[in-house]
Computed example of a mutant assay.
Amino acid sequence: MPALPHGGVGHRIAATRQARRMTQADLARAAYVSLTMIKAIERGARNPSDDTLESIADALGVDPSRLAAGSGRSDSRVHHAMPAISAAIAAYDLPADPPERPLPYLADDVAALVGWRLGAQYTRIAARAPRLLGETLAALHHAADCDRPQAARLVATTARAVDAVAYKSGHHDLSARLVELMRWAAVQSEDPVTAATAAYVRTETFFAARAHAQGLRALELAIDAAPSPVGPAAAARGALHMRAAVIAARAEDAGAATLHLTEARRLGDTVAEGAYDGTAFGPDSVRAHEVSVAVSLGRDHLQRALDVADEWTPPDHLPAERQSGFWIELSRAQLWAGRTDDAFESLKVARHIAPQHTREHPWARDTAGTLRRLKRSDAETLTSFAEWIGAV
């Protein structure tokens, strides 16, 4: 497992800075903060304000939550952004004022949003989401016919990034509205890959409702409608199979889960690992999903999850969100197998990789709470972790 840094926010800032091969002076200049303040924060003599922490995080290229992993401040900022996001999409189908910026500038900002989503940098997305949702919607409503498909793809991609924040922070009603916005824009994009991506993301609404059989049916219809699996389209179809395998497992349909995972593996072997239309897919993503499928099928299949983890762990090039998901799901399998120490170590790795994703994940919270009950006499680190994640 990766080595984990210890200490408070100052230690995490110093460790991240050193990993970036930056001096304290470099960080001070990039964050527009005095060198004296950087030194004081790193040695623990001062706590940064929210604005200062965000400036430092921007300079280091990480989400503030990764630096402030011991507090709930960044998580609170995500939750506080939800009303503004809701307002931004309330009248999504009604023409707004013309956009202030042209499509190329909006495309750059949307691309940054995708990177933050893959990196589980939810605070950054939440801070910028309301304005970017409004701008991309205005661009779509005012686009010339030749630009409408691109504008529609920008709306769909923005909605998807913001939905990740809403869904993972438990705002499932808002998430469902963002998914519908994505599907509405996907139709106007005239792009079958964008439509396939919207179908992939729509599965969240079925997960939230525990309507697993219906979700499997919806994904199988989307697979039938997906473009032929050639080039990037192979990744789109493979991702749908990958998602179908997980929801089939949740529906306790082991046969369908195996069939879809087998097809995802076949398609994954035809493309390089990467982000295709914002979805990570390739051999490593499929391998991570083998653990997810095994854990979703339940305790009788946990050995498969443990076997995968014995011979493979997620490489650093996989998105942070996908890496942390692997460790969270592995932790659940390890708990079922009675390997409580390993389960706790896996949760700590997940937290190190993507703190907000881990803190909001219901399985991580459930596992931490169970570990705390089973190991009451253990060191205070477990109690501290359980309190951080909200399990006690």
Rank of each mutant, 00 (worst) to 15 (best):
D284K: 13
A45N: 10
R46T: 09
A120V: 06
V62S: 01
F385I: 04
R12G: 00
A272Y: 01
R243P: 03
A364N: 05
G369T: 11
G215E: 07
W388E: 07
D147C: 07
A391K: 14
A69N: 00
S74E: 04
A111C: 09
G70H: 02
P48A: 03
I353R: 05
D191W: 08
G369I: 11
T197I: 10
G298M: 15
A176R: 15
H142V: 06
A245N: 09
H317I: 06
A88I: 07
L219W: 10
D307T: 13
A111M: 14
R160F: 04
P98H: 06
D63I: 02
L302F: 11
D284A: 15
D284Y: 05
D366H: 14
T36D: 15
G8H: 09
T136K: 13
V286C: 06
A57F: 05
H352G: 01
G115C: 12
L302R: 15
R46C: 12
S169C: 10
R266Y: 02
E321K: 12
L103R: 12
A40I: 02
V179H: 01
G255C: 15
L181Q: 07
I125W: 08
A129H: 08
D224I: 11
S49T: 15
E290G: 10
G134V: 11
A226G: 09
A235V: 06
H301Q: 14
P98S: 06
V162L: 14
L137I: 14
E345T: 13
R77Y: 01
A87W: 11
V162Q: 08
V293T: 14
T205G: 01
I353L: 14
L94S: 08
P355L: 08
T197G: 08
L306M: 13
A166T: 04
L374G: 09
L137P: 12
H301V: 07
L4K: 13
I41P: 07
R128W: 04
E290L: 08
T279Y: 02
W363L: 15
P355I: 03
R266K: 10
